[in-house]
Each structure stands twice: as structure tokens, then as C-alpha cells.
Design a protein around this nucleic acid. Structure first.
Lengths: 101, 101
DNA sequence: CTGCCATACCTAGATGATCTAGGTATGGCT
DNA sequence: AGCCATACCTAGATCATCTAGGTATGGCAG
């Protein structure tokens, strides 16, 4: 579904919406993309974990409302990576468009 | 490198350039994309075989110039599939753009 | 006050696409 | 005669993503 651009999408959603928990990331992605990206939790949670291992996001358990949630936030490296992924996306996109033209 | 859109790209190159052999498909893709997609043979040949299994392309051995080449051509189903993949690409692309905006 | 649904998190293993890393054969040029 | 570019191929590795489960809890309907 996200075809190799999942990291880009997750980082972008965190940028748009600020720090938020995984379930909200899923909902945010679905809404921002007008339903185009309705990803299963089994896709998103492991991807967030990997972003954290790579230092692009940071997480913290929060208990506001009494509900336990893990809130993710972009790190500096994450912001930098987002810019890089956007550039890669632009090149990918224009490559495809050129072939289709 | 082609991130799940390889079929689209191969079908599009065959559409652009007409029937051609695998090595030419690789070169055509590289040139049409301005170097963005320089795919290894080990990626493209199996992908062409799969397109043929799926009935989207048809191949024939040709021996013009004395050189043995397998020439691939789009089938009717291939043309139809190309239209569908283009639509999927457009949705994918606008989904990503919407999230990035 | 109880049962159920939405929320919220998680992981193991399957799947599938693509790449790596080999291999073969031949035509044309030096 | 030897070498390089062309031209084809496949087995197995790798990696991203999905499937298919699992747990726990807050809030609402009945």
C-alpha cells in the first residue's frame, strides 16, 4: 500500500500534526490522504519502532485521560530525514512522470 | 528502486517504444527517466517473465542481425492494465502529495 | 452493572517484490 | 585471438509490508 514510502508518510504526518500516538498517526494518515492510505496497525507500529531505533522519532508513554498511550515526536534527525525523503520522493515522482509522459 | 511500481514502468516503456527486447527496456527506462531508474537485469527479466505469465505482454525470439533476442510486446490486456496502473499511480501520487502538503 | 465496541498497543510469521551475485553465449572491434 | 558490450537467465538473499493473531481499558447501551 505505501510501496516503500512509508517512512516518508509517517514522518510527514508527525510533522503536520505534531507529537501524537500511533493510533492517531494511523487516523491522521488516513484523513490527510483522503482515505488513500488506510494502513493496518501491524504495518504502522513496527515502522514507528524502526524509526525510533534509527533515531528519527522519540517516544514517551503518556497517561493523560487515564489512557496509556505511546506518544511519538520527530527528533532533529527526523526532521532532517524528512527533508531528504521529500527530495527522494520528488525525484522518484518526476522519474515516473517522465516515463509515463 | 522502483518501489512497487515496476510493472507500471515496464508497461509504460513498452507502450512508448513499441515491441522491444529486455535489454532495450532497461536502457529505455534509464533514458526516459533521465537516469532515475537504472535497474539491474536481475530485476527486470523476472519482472517481464511475470508480466508474460499474467498475459500483459507477449514475447517472441527474434534473430534479426543474427543476434538472438526475446522481443516483448504489450497485449490488449497489457494496454488495459497500463491504464489501470496509471490510475492507481495517480491516486498514490496525490495521496502522498496531500500528506506532504 | 454488565457486556460490548472502539481505542490502543503489540508481535511472530507469511508474503511478495526487488536485488545480489552469480552464470552462459555471441557479435564486433582491436 | 582476445576482449568487451550486448543479451539472456536463475537461485537465493534481503527487506518492506501485511495477516492474523494476541492483550488491556475506557465509555456507552441496555
Amino acid at each position: 500500500m505505501a510501496h516503500g514510502h512509508l517512512d516518508l508518510l509517517l514522518l510527514a504526518v508527525l510533522r503536520r500534526g505534531g507529537p501524537q500516538h500511533g493510533y492517531a498517526v494511523i487516523a491522521g494518515l488516513r484523513e490527510a490522504s483522503d482515505g488513500a492510505f488506510d494502513l493496518p496497525e501491524g504495518t504502522v507500529y513496527p515502522a514507528l519502532h524502526k524509526l525510533e531505533r534509527d533515531g528519527l522519532v522519540q517516544s514517551e508513554w503518556s497517561s493523560e485521560d487515564g489512557r496509556k498511550r505511546r506518544v511519538y515526536a520527530l527528533t532533529g534527525a527526523g526532521r532532517t530525514a524528512l527533508v531528504a525523503r521529500k527530495t527522494e520522493w520528488a525525484m522518484f515522482r518526476s522519474g515516473v512522470e517522465a516515463v509515463l509522459a
